[in-house]
């Protein structure tokens, strides 16, 4: 295995046992290396870094208010360019789904439109977890949260598509259950100039309501059912990632009910919603097939 040995997160963090986000961050930092400046808005990831005086990571992090992640990153990039350090240091914004798809979308869109030279990574645990599981626009259909007691009525917002519409050079999806795929993508993205966007599914035991031992299993099911395909869009070219390739064949996909029934947040989901998932997955893969054939 040619994965970097050095760890950039020290053990003994405040994250829950079985947190996929910490695994995602672990491999992202390994791929990015020490010459990286991060900026992070309020989220579980803020808490990972620690409290006053001490921190658990070995990288430089600028904590920033919720709505400002894209703007904070733009400021860091501008100052590095001014100092002539922009070629050596990679600027990375790392934010939750609430901080990305709701509160920070304006600053992110602005930075992407300006072509700011940075990576923006959203770890998507599909709710505002740090404040006790409130729904975000990235919470999926039918999921229980503190603010959707009957299950969410609206489907998940498709952030990678919104970012692709900005015409940026790199968009990728990833999943905490595929750390090698994630590592390779961060390595690739590090060497591309311009705005690069990651959307990473991040299984969350207390928020999704499953046993911490099943974090990898549940996240993997999201991809194996075809719900969360892994891909890259590099300068407009759609590339299906290795772990998702076989799911082009619908017969290879597991039924979405396996994924939903493994998590108590979906325990009251309706038959109709499950059918909507099946249709969503079918349409999503038809589109992927079309894209692959027509490029």
């Amino acid at each position: 295995m040619d994965i970097v040995e050095e760890e950039f997160i020290n053990p003994g963090t405040r994250m829950c046992a079985g947190c996929a986000m910490q695994l995602i961050y672990r491999f992202a930092l390994k791929a990015l290396g020490p010459n990286t400046i991060l900026t992070v808005p309020a989220s579980c990831l803020t808490v990972l870094h620690g409290m006053q005086g001490f921190c658990s990571t070995k990288v430089s992090v600028l904590h920033t208010p919720f709505a400002t992640t894209g703007a904070a990153a733009s400021g860091i990039v501008a100052s590095l360019e001014e100092k002539g350090l922009a070629d050596n240091i990679c600027v990375v914004a790392f934010a939750g789904d609430g901080g990305t798809s709701d509160i920070g979308i304006q600053a992110l869109s602005g930075a992407a439109e300006r072509g700011t030279n940075f990576i923006y990574a959203c770890y998507d645990n599909e709710a505002y977890m740090n404040t006790g599981v409130q729904r975000s626009s990235s919470t999926p259909l039918g999921a229980f949260t503190a603010t959707t007691p009957g299950g969410k009525i609206r489907p998940k917002k498709n952030m990678p598509r919104i970012l692709e519409a900005h015409g940026i050079p790199y968009v990728a999806t990833a999943n905490g259950s595929y750390p090698i795929d994630l590592y390779d993508k961060f390595k690739r993205a590090r060497d591309i100039k311009g705005t690069r966007y990651f959307h990473i599914l991040s299984a969350c035991p207390p928020g999704w309501r499953f046993d911490p031992k099943d974090t990898i299993y549940i996240g993997r099911l999201a991809t194996e059912t075809g719900f969360w395909p892994l891909y890259e869009i590099i300068n407009g070219k759609f590339v299906l990632s290795q772990p998702s390739k076989k799911f082009l064949d619908p017969a290879k996909r597991k039924d979405i009910e396996q994924y939903l029934s493994a998590q108590k947040r979906f325990s009251n989901i309706s038959k109709q919603d499950i059918e909507s998932y099946r249709n969503y997955i079918r349409d999503q893969w038809n589109e992927i097939k079309r894209r692959l054939e027509n490029q």
């Binding site: 003994g12 001490f54 921190c55």
Partner: peptide, 8 residues
């Protein structure tokens, strides 16, 4: 902030 092992 100073990096430490066992922040929590």
């Amino acid at each position: 902030q100073k990096p430490v092992i066992g922040e929590a």
